[in-house]
Design a protein around this nucleic acid. Structure first.
Length: 258
DNA sequence: ATGTCTTTTTCAAAAAGA
């Protein structure tokens, strides 16, 4: 089983890149973030034609998340994180698919910090943590995949110097991610590559992609019911014409029998 | 401070978020 997460940065302008990637890599399950489209503009027909069932939680202009399943229909188990009924940003959707629970998330960026956006980010991560604890303990195999907007350590960025004040590197955000992991989750990319630098995002500025000046902010977290087989990043997608600023990250795994 | 891209309002150019 192969599950991938891909921040597309606009499903409307990225559809051809997405379809080419789906055809070439054929992941079984896909988590998408930053659709930047309301529900009625999700390209369900094109995705179905590519062989995928889908659920989505869109929003005009910003955010938006979706879960795709090759040759199957994801069964939605949740839309939106619990814990704040007033939160109307589309950043979480969850489904039962292929025998596991998949949580697809797009954490707040949090810039500028300090400020209300950073406060919202930390509060959102707290809510994620509370829900993740319940999922972890549910007895089901669970994968939590998406754009966490957290660079976990200085080893997860080409050079932290110019990002020291960025919300993605703040100690509070890093502590949140660390506390989440301490519930028992396996960070698939780091587990697979303990000694290598591995990135999932290269911003559009300052020639970051040609210089391989990347950040690791897209993460795939596995609970104890899942056995990690392999993981990686489809870097070729970032090198395409008209690419998103993120590349897809993926994991292959099996589900434990007991 | 800057860099670049996407979306929205509105139908060109600029603002805002990332």
């Amino acid at each position: 089983m192969k599950l991938a997460t891909f921040n597309v940065n606009g499903i409307g302008s990225r559809l051809s890149n997405l379809l080419e990637w789906l055809e070439r890599e054929a992941p079984d399950i896909v988590c998408l973030q930053e659709l930047k489209a309301p529900d009625e503009r999700f390209p369900a027909a094109a995705i179905r034609k590519a062989g995928y069932g889908a659920i989505w939680h869109g929003q005009r202009s910003w955010n938006g998340v979706a879960i795709l399943a090759r040759g199957a229909e994801p069964i939605e188990t949740r839309r939106g994180l619990p814990g704040n009924a007033a939160d109307d940003q589309s950043r979480y959707v969850e489904a039962a698919v292929q025998g596991l629970i998949v949580g697809c998330l797009y954490a707040p960026n949090g810039n500028p910090q300090p400020g209300p956006k950073f406060d919202y980010k930390l509060a959102w991560l707290e809510r994620l943590m509370a829900h993740a604890a319940a999922l972890y303990a549910s007895g089901h195999p669970v994968v939590l995949a998406g754009d966490y907007n957290v660079v976990p350590t200085d080893f997860d960025i080409y050079n932290p110097k110019s990002w020291k004040k960025d919300a993605l590197l703040q100690p509070e955000a890093r502590k949140s991610y660390e506390r989440l992991l301490s519930q028992g989750w396996v960070d698939a990319l780091r587990a697979r590559y303990p000694q290598e630098r591995i990135y999932t995002f290269w911003d559009y500025f300052r020639q970051h992609w040609p210089r391989d000046a990347g950040l690791r902010i897209d993460h795939l977290l596995l609970n104890a019911k899942i056995t990690l087989l392999d993981a990686g990043v489809d870097r070729w997608v970032r090198g395409q014409e008209h690419a998103s600023d993120h590349a897809p990250a993926w994991v292959t795994f099996s589900i434990k029998k007991r």
